[in-house]
């Protein structure tokens, strides 16, 4: 077997890697939510960072642009149900916060916020109440957006693949 890239293969690899320009957002657009109100977006930003925070190993959801990705996804969703689930879910979280602590979620302090999330997270596998269902939605969308991001793939998981290899890595079957 040849250990060098032959020219023909190299040309094929190069032509295959020419990407069709994706609809990249400009810097200005990136700063502005398309679907959520400024208040909702602030809440979303806090929540996603609490689901996947910055730690000593890697940056978290905020740095990875998770709230913006979720905002774009919800904004272009085809069915109103999904948009509705996000709107009412954020409202439900504030309602629960008011009920327990007389203030909206962003005003109750980190300790009470995390306690409230932990309560909703208990039923993650089989959510029943509106709050539990919202947690499941928040968790799923945050995890997907984070682990498909540049930071999630490279800085957190430290994924080493999607590269050109002359030999497969690993162990021979003996």
């Amino acid at each position: 077997m040849s250990a060098t890239l032959d020219r023909r293969d190299l040309l094929k690899l190069l032509s295959a890697s020419v990407l069709a320009g994706p609809l990249q957002l400009t810097a200005a657009e990136k700063d502005k939510p398309l679907f959520f109100s400024p208040d909702e977006f602030e809440l979303l930003d806090t929540l996603t960072e609490q689901i996947i925070p910055t730690d000593s190993h890697s940056p978290g959801a905020h740095a990875a642009g998770v709230p913006f990705y979720i905002d774009r996804t919800v904004a272009e969703a085809f069915l109103p149900d999904y948009k509705e689930a996000w709107k009412t879910g954020l409202a439900e979280l504030n309602r629960l916060s008011f009920e327990e602590h007389k203030h909206p979620y962003l005003k109750i302090g980190k300790e009470k916020q995390l306690a409230l999330l932990a309560l909703l997270a208990k039923a993650e596998q089989d959510p029943k109440t509106a709050g539990e269902k919202f947690f499941a939605l928040l968790k799923e969308d945050t995890a997907y957006a984070y682990y498909t991001s540049d930071i999630g793939i490279h800085k957190d998981i430290e994924y080493k693949g999607n590269v050109i290899q002359m030999e497969f890595a690993g162990y021979d079957a003996v």
Binding site: Q50, I51, I52, P53, D55, L114, L117, A121, E124, Q125, K139, E140, A143, Y144, Y146, Y147, T148, I153, I157, Y159, K160, G161, N162
Partner: peptide, 15 residues
């Protein structure tokens, strides 16, 4: 290791 870990099925949140 795959590019995307099984993150959604892992319970919990936070650090």
């Amino acid at each position: 290791t795959t590019m995307l870990p099984s993150s959604v099925s892992t319970p919990g949140f936070g650090e």
